[in-house]
């Protein structure tokens, strides 16, 4: 009985999730259904928004009840969360990580910094619009968004996946020249960060 409110919340969230009926055929529908019910989120945090992610995934907000759980490496992950401002140095790593993930992959951007620069609007070292450099499926605004809004963002993303609308990875492949041009404009000709297995040994470290 004491869990009643909790179950009600779960029902509200999932009812919203199951309301879509638009799909081309049953195979597509099934595929999208499996994709939306199982989301592996890369354990990767940039900026201050990373601090809101642990409560989202642990006991208090428990994203696992919606099929959302963490994945340790980009190879296993479906979603990368860009959680806050991206400096150029971070952007390199984000792009590299994003390109290591296997299709289909989705991007969830948190915080006003990824939307329009946020409080770092006049910083020489921070990008202002994330969607210029990599495709974004879903923005969650706020500074920082609370775990509730992150969950809402996940539900919205799941809904788009279920309807087959979330296709940013195709967008990235089709418009690769556009994204690459924008990346090179801020990062220089060499976009990928230069490190290998023993990067911490030479060059005085870091």
């Amino acid at each position: 009985m004491e869990h009643n409110g909790f179950i009600q919340e779960q029902k509200t969230l999932e009812g919203d999730l199951n309301s879509d009926t638009s799909h081309k055929n049953s195979v597509d529908f099934l595929m999208n259904w499996f994709r939306k019910r199982s989301i592996f989120v890369l354990a990767y945090g940039t900026g201050c928004g990373a601090i809101e992610m642990p409560p989202t995934f642990t006991s208090r907000y428990d994203a696992e009840r919606l099929g959302i759980r963490g994945a340790a490496t980009p190879r296993q992950a479906d979603v990368i969360i860009v959680s806050g401002y991206c400096s150029y140095k971070t952007l390199r790593r984000i792009i590299r990580t994003y390109e290591q993930m296997s299709n289909p992959k989705y991007v969830l951007a948190l915080g006003s910094c990824t939307v329009n620069g946020g409080m770092y609007w006049d910083s020489y070292n921070t990008i202002k619009k994330l969607e210029d450099y990599m495709p974004v499926d879903m923005y969650v605004n706020g500074c920082m968004p609370r775990p509730e809004s992150i969950l809402e963002g996940f539900i919205a993303l799941q809904k788009e996946i279920g309807e087959g609308k979330a296709s940013s990875w195709q967008k990235y492949e089709e418009n690769y020249e556009f994204y690459r041009k924008n990346q090179e404009a801020v990062l220089g000709k060499k976009v990928e960060p230069s490190y290998d297995a023993d990067w911490y040994l030479y060059d005085g470290g870091l």
């Binding site: 910083s123 990008i127 801020v186």
Partner: peptide, 12 residues
């Protein structure tokens, strides 16, 4: 800084 940002980055 401001000139650099306006020259190099696009705002929404």
């Amino acid at each position: 800084t401001l000139e650099f940002v306006n020259n190099h980055l696009t705002f929404r």
